[in-house]
């Protein structure tokens, strides 16, 4: 979106989240909605991140703690299953890793440049002391 000068703003500006009309927002999944360019869903804060969460589905028990406690709506759950992390909106806070109850954790933080597949291959084993 082109940047506007200070005197080009509308007074009492109204932003429309969606293009066209939408009847039942609460019953429409994010991928089925027609977001307009004014929705922050179309923006990205991926460059805020220094560390990123990596999701290993082998250990996940679908408890959904990460979904409810994610501040940035970045944990994608469909049909009661966790299917991944939204890397456009994740800010890398690490709450999902802290609240993960499995042993070993099914989400761990790695540096932004780490390769996901390599890290999943070298996933830490069960920690006996904590169990």
């Amino acid at each position: 979106m082109a940047k506007k000068g200070w005197d080009e703003f509308e007074i009492g500006a109204m932003l429309r989240t969606f293009d066209g009309s939408i009847d039942d927002i609460a019953g429409t999944r994010q991928e089925d909605r027609s977001y307009s360019e004014n929705s922050s869903y179309m923006a990205s804060v991926a460059d805020w991140r220094l560390i990123k969460p990596v999701f290993n589905k082998d250990y996940c028990i679908d408890c959904q703690f990460c979904w409810i406690y994610c501040p940035d709506v970045s944990i994608i759950s469909r049909d009661k299953k966790l299917i991944g992390v939204d890397m456009d909106h994740c800010k890398g806070c690490g709450i999902c890793v802290e609240v993960c109850p499995t042993n070993p954790k099914s989400l761990l933080m790695f540096p932004e440049q780490a390769d996901e597949e390599t890290e999943i291959a070298q996933w830490p084993k069960k920690d006996e002391e904590e169990a």
């Binding site: 609460a26 429409t28 994010q30 679908d62 959904q64 501040p71 690490g94």
Partner: peptide, 21 residues
């Protein structure tokens, strides 16, 4: 919580709140 997780969020990411807010 599993049932709750089928909700379609009406609040979007890429807001500018601090990480972990």
């Amino acid at each position: 919580l599993k049932e709750f997780s089928t909700s379609a969020d009406r609040f979007e990411g890429a807001n500018l709140l601090c990480p972990g807010c």
